[in-house]
Structure formats: C-alpha cells, structure tokens
Design a protein around this nucleic acid. Sequence first.
DNA 1: CCATTAGTGGCAACCGGTTGTCAAATTGAT
DNA 2: ATCAATTTGACAACCGGTTGCCACTAATGG
Lengths: 158, 158
Amino acid sequence: MTTQPSTKASILTDIMLAVFRVNGRLLEKGDQLVAPLNLTSARWQVLGAVAMAGNPLSAPQVAEAMGVTRQGAQKQLNKLEEEGFLKMLPNPRHERSPLFVPTDKGNRTIAATMSLQMAWATGLSSSLSLQNLKSTLELLNTMYELLDSPVPTKGAKP
Amino acid sequence: MTTQPSTKASILTDIMLAVFRVNGRLLEKGDQLVAPLNLTSARWQVLGAVAMAGNPLSAPQVAEAMGVTRQGAQKQLNKLEEEGFLKMLPNPRHERSPLFVPTDKGNRTIAATMSLQMAWATGLSSSLSLQNLKSTLELLNTMYELLDSPVPTKGAKP
DNA sequence: CCATTAGTGGCAACCGGTTGTCAAATTGAT
DNA sequence: ATCAATTTGACAACCGGTTGCCACTAATGG
C-alpha cells in the first residue's frame, strides 16, 4: 500500500471490483451447491422466483420479477418445464402465454435448495459480524438505486 | 415485512441477491461509460489489466491477473489488438505466445477511462458515507476469501 | 539426442444473457 | 366491428465467458 488517499471514490472503485469477483464466486459456488439437484444457478433463481410468487406466473411476469429480459426468463422456463420442475397451466387471459407453476418434483427441489442455501449462508455468515452485514446490505441497496435511476443528462423528453 | 428474524444468514442471503443486481448494473453502466471510447466493460477490464502491469504480458499472464480463463482473456486480447489498442511484441521465451502492450492509442484510451471512472465514482460516492464504504469493502473482501478457499466437507481425497 | 511432459494458441461447442425480427393473440380506440 | 398498437413466444444472432480438443512450442530427463 502506497499511502493511498483512500478517498470515497477510490474505495467505491475497489468495491466495484470486489462485486465483480464476489459475483463470479457466488455463481460458481451456487452451481456446485445445486448441481446434485440437477439445477444450475440460473435455473435455481428462476425456480425460486416462481416458488416465491406462490401463484402461477407467465413468462413476462417472471422476467419482471427477476429484473431480466423476457427472452432470458423464457429460455430457463422452457428448460425447467422440459426437465419436469415446472408445468404449464392454460392462461385464461392469453392463449399463447401459459402460466408456470412448480410440479411436485419442482416443489421438492425448491425445498431442498432452501435447505442447502440456509446451511451455506449460515456457515459463511458465522465469520461475519451482524453490524457489518447490515451496513453492507444497506450500501449495496443504495448503490443499486443510485445506479438504477440516474439516467443522467436526459434532455428533452416529450 | 413480516417481522423477519433478520438473522445473519438471512442478511447474507439478501447481500448475495444484492450483489447479483449490482453486478448487472455495474456492467451495464460501465458499458455505457466507455462506449464513446469504442470499448466495452470486458475490453476495458483487459486493457486495464495490461496497463496496470506496466510491462508486456502474455495471454496466460493476463488471464491469471484477471482471474479468468486463458481463452477468455485471449478472445479479448485478440480483439483489442485487431482494434489497435494493443500491439504484440515477440516473446523471447515463447515463439507462439506474443507479449501484449498498449499502443499509443491504447495508452490514450486508458487515460480516458481512468478519468471517466474517477468522475463516475466520485459522483456516486458522494451519497455514501466513508464508514459505510469501508465496512462494505471489508466485508466483500472477506466474503471473497471465504468463497475462495473453503472447499467445504472435502471428505477423503487421495 | 531423443522422448515425454507442460505450456500455448486456434477452433468449436456450450451456457446464460441480450437484442432484434416475426407472427399470432390481446387490447383499445374509433 | 374494425383496425392499429401492444403483448407474447419462437427463432436467430450476438457478447462474454467456460470447457474440451488439437497441434505446435518449450522444457525436462533419460
């Protein structure tokens, strides 16, 4: 360390790099965690979103809930359906756009992922302080909002 | 809110989800930031790694420095060379594995990215507290280490 | 000196995500 | 009722990353 000023901007820059690295590790570990259930991180997240809702969701609704594009969600939903984790229900509001809901297998798998995730997070968090965790979550959420809204110099918009 | 217990594990789980979201936004905003320089986030990172080193690097060295696979780095290096940001020097130690170093254009572009990045980070960090930034960076780094090493219940190996 | 091993780049395939285009379904306005 | 705009799913192409395979270089050791 060369007696860096450690300005807020430079710390934030380091945080950005840390987010990239941690993100990569989380996906990697997540893949390993749910591999025994024949899931990947991506499918796990989609399955979780459907389970979380509690009621049948269409593909665009899943995309919306996950902050991902319609087609991105669609791909995983189709695969989860093929693999028997989800089933399609006819959508009374749109003939071509079925609603997705977990199968029995899907529900069992969801329960298993929650158990795995809980054990994992508990183990990891044991080395971390509650105060530190809280302030980190707060800052990340603030960062997300800052990155979300400020479409900077948005000139004239009829 | 349903009077959640807010255990350390549950906060950590929320942090994981926040990392996914923030990661996505950072890449998106980063792409926008350097688009005027004809760069993407990915190329920016590689170019930065080469610049950071200060001396010519081979593709495997860049991959190593970035924590990415050899072929992943290679793809971007080849493109950066095609686009005139990097040039290849003959590698005395390996005839087929040239060393990459920024061109003049590359160096100018690197300077421009650093200026853009600084301005961006300064603006963002103005809404954030130094204490909060510090503890977040610390926790993310700790998380990274925890995720890096602990190959958990590694039973019998040999 | 030769043989085996390790390092390296090219190529191709895949995963997960995005964008764009198209046709069909739905909705809304007239 | 009709016609235009919107929503939706399929399909295809791309980006960025990974893995696997192959061929060629380099290093090592008999």
